[in-house]
Structures are given as structure tokens and as C-alpha cells.
Design a protein around this nucleic acid. Structure first.
Lengths: 210, 210
DNA sequence: TATAAGAAATAGACAGTGCTCAATTTGTGA
DNA sequence: TCACAAATTGAGCACTGTCTATTTCTTATA
């Protein structure tokens, strides 16, 4: 008859609540200031806990950022699913996919940028939970590409999907960082979509011939 | 009859020599430790000058990193030109271009990563000299793509070129960051090349039809 | 009920960082 | 020889992440 839930000294927040509080506050901070302006101390200040508490819960500032990025990944995947549901089974799902990729980056440029700018120290890789959370987005795309080319999900389709993700990512990356506008490019998203369509039609031709 | 050249106190290094010294030492430091391990103080330590000197010459650590990245860009462009010369006018110049893009990233992963991870503070953009130095790489690609599709260099070809750069960049980015190997992708460079070839042949079809 | 045990939270020290600016060289032209 | 002015220094400031000793509170036991 033991209560394992409230073992700490503060009853303000349970461990889970504290994790959530740190995570969402950290996410807001990155959204506001970008990864460069992020600091674990500032997160502690905002939630009214000391810096040591952050360390207790997340171990390292890097691991906290990794957790925040995983959360961004999940939100991103969710918004992608929403768009796919919105266009329906007969809509232009490929366009929805590309627009979903760009959409999250445009709406949350700092969060999106943080995902790809952050590097973990060489020793400590991602958590199992991080890995699976991030794999969601890839899985959605793989499923959609399989649907688009009318195949089962196999290694070949998965490889094509990753290549298409990389293609769209490159365009989005330049668009968000601003390197693109300096070069006078007007419609990076349209270009990305064009490249994807070309690859898909090349794949169809390949299938027909074999 | 006034000599304006030697106004300083140290004859160890002229201003230009000092700039070069800081730049090359900083470049080596990033190549060794990555952008995260970079510090202006460490550069000062290594060249035997004080931290103040770095600030006199480059103003800000961010501007120093920007200058280092511009230097990387130039080296990158030079190695691209070399590869193009090596394959000659009748070789597979498109493959050489893609391989050159990946090649620099593979040989100098930290320098390459630093180029795209570094963000200047919102107020201070890049120098004129930085801009032109970085534009070199794009120009090389635009010229080659014009050659490949047998056109003059115009806005359309330039837009296509930027889109192809983005495509290759996306693949290279995932390959270097390691996100790729986690997904089990074996040949990111081959995939990038395939996407580029598809885009070029789609362009050819487009030209033939019009 | 009183007390021992133990975990959460904290405070604060440590070693770094970038940036500033008064004080200090020191080469040079007068 | 001297004075000037540019180049260089480095202590000081406000930060940062990380870590350990300490406090504070809850729970379980005697």
C-alpha cells in the first residue's frame, strides 16, 4: 500500500508535469529566440525553478534541446497528417506533402531550423524515444510515396522516399535560411514540387518498361 | 614622402598577415573540433596574440566565423573547378559536379557543416566580399548546367541550377549529418545524381516539345 | 507519534565563453 | 632624441553549462 507518486519535496509539479513544463517552455524559448538564443538557465528562470532542476530532469542542455526537437518533429508529423486528411484520398497528396514540409518550416522557422542545426556531442546519441518519435515523419512520407507509385512499401520505395525528402529538404533549407532570396529565387516550394514530380514520373516510366 | 604602410608597433606580422594567420588558424580549429568547439579565445591562444587583437581585426566572433566560412566556400569552388578540368570537356561533367559537392563535404565535414550551421545575428548581414566569394560556387554550377542543356545562361537556367543545387545539398546534408545512415541509406550520392539527371532530361523533353 | 531514511530541489562554485576599454607598449616621423 | 599615434594587451563584466554539497520535504518505519 505504498504511494510511489509523490516522493519529492515539492508538490507544485509531479515529475511528469515538470518534464512537460520544461519541454514546452524550452520550445517556446527556441521559437522566440532561435537555437543561438537558447539557454537552459533562461528556461529555469521562466519556470521558477533553479538550473539544477533542469539538470536533474534532462541531464544535459544538449539532451534537453534534443527532446525539444523530437517534440517539434512530432508536431510536424501531426500537421502533415492533418493536411493529408484535409485533401482526402483523391486530392493532390504529393503537393500536400511538400506544402506540409514547407508549411511547418514557414510557421515555426526557429523550431524547424533548430532541428537541423543542433548536433549532439559525439558520445551521446539520441534516445530510443527520440529515434522513434522522429521516424514518424519518414514513415508518413514512405506510405504516401508507395501509394503514389502504386506499390507495396519495400526497400526500393523507402529509398526513393528518403531521396525525395532530401530533395524537398534542400529546397526548404535554402528558402528558410534566406540563402535563396539572395539568389533571387521566387518559388522554392514550386521548384521542389517540380523535382519530386519528375522523379515520380521517371519511376513510373521505369516500372512500365520492366 | 610619407610611408603609410608600417604604422603599427609589432613587426611580427603586417595587418594582412595577421588576418591570414587568424583566418587559417580559425579554419583549422573548426576543422578539428567543429563549430561547437570553436572559440575566438582559443584562436588567440594558438597564434600567441591576445583576445583583443582578434576583435580589432574581425570585430566579432560571428564575423570571424563568417569569414572562415567564406574561405571554405572558395576552397570548395576551387576543388570543383579542378574536378571539372580533370574530367575534360567530353567527360561526365554533371557527375563531376555532384561528386565535387559531396567530395568537399566528405573531406572536410566540420568545415562544410559549419558553413550551413552558422547564423549571423539578425542585424549584421554578410560583407560584400563574403557575398561575392560565396557566389562563385553557384556561378560554376549555373555555367555547367547551361552547358549541359545547351542553352545560354538566362534566368530560367539559373533557377533550374539553384533547384539542382538544393537537391544535391539536401542529399549531402543528410549524408554528412548521419541522419541518412540511421535510415539505412547506402548511396546518397548516387540518389542525388539520379534526381539531377531526371530533372535535366525532363528539361530536355520540355525544350524539344516547345 | 516520533524518527530515520531518502529523494527532489537548491545554492553556489568552477571553468569556460564573448565583448569592452583604459592602460600600455613600441615603431615611426619630426 | 622626442613625441605621437597606432597596435596590443588583459583585467573586468555578464554570461554560459556542468557538477557537488547541502537543504528541505515526504514517506516509511520503529
Amino acid at each position: 500500500m505504498t504511494y510511489i507518486h509523490f516522493m519529492g519535496r515539492r508538490s507544485d509539479h509531479s515529475r511528469a508535469e515538470l518534464e512537460e513544463l520544461i519541454l514546452s517552455t524550452g520550445s517556446t524559448l527556441i521559437a522566440e529566440t532561435g537555437l543561438a538564443g537558447f539557454s537552459a538557465r533562461e528556461v529555469a528562470r521562466r519556470i521558477g525553478y533553479s538550473i539544477g532542476t533542469i539538470h536533474n530532469v534532462f541531464g544535459t542542455a544538449d539532451r534537453l534541446v534534443a527532446a525539444i526537437n523530437t517534440r517539434s518533429f512530432k508536431d510536424w508529423a501531426a500537421s502533415l497528417r492533418e493536411r493529408l486528411n484535409a485533401v482526402g484520398p483523391d486530392g493532390d497528396r504529393i503537393a500536400a506533402l511538400v506544402d506540409g514540409y514547407f508549411g511547418f518550416a514557414r510557421e515555426h522557422p526557429h523550431l524547424w531550423t533548430a532541428i537541423f542545426d543542433h548536433r549532439l556531442p559525439p558520445d551521446g546519441g539520441l534516445t530510443e524515444a527520440d529515434e522513434t518519435g522522429r521516424a514518424l515523419l519518414t514513415r508518413i512520407v514512405v506510405e504516401e510515396i508507395a501509394r503514389a507509385v502504386g506499390c507495396e512499401v519495400d526497400d526500393e520505395v523507402a529509398a526513393l522516399s528518403r531521396s525525395l525528402i532530401a530533395t524537398v529538404h534542400g529546397h526548404c533549407s535554402f528558402a528558410i535560411s534566406g540563402a535563396w532570396s539572395l539568389m533571387g529565387e521566387a518559388a522554392p516550394e514550386a521548384a521542389a514540387l517540380a523535382r519530386v514530380r519528375e522523379a515520380l514520373s521517371a519511376w513510373d516510366v521505369c516500372l512500365t518498361q520492366s
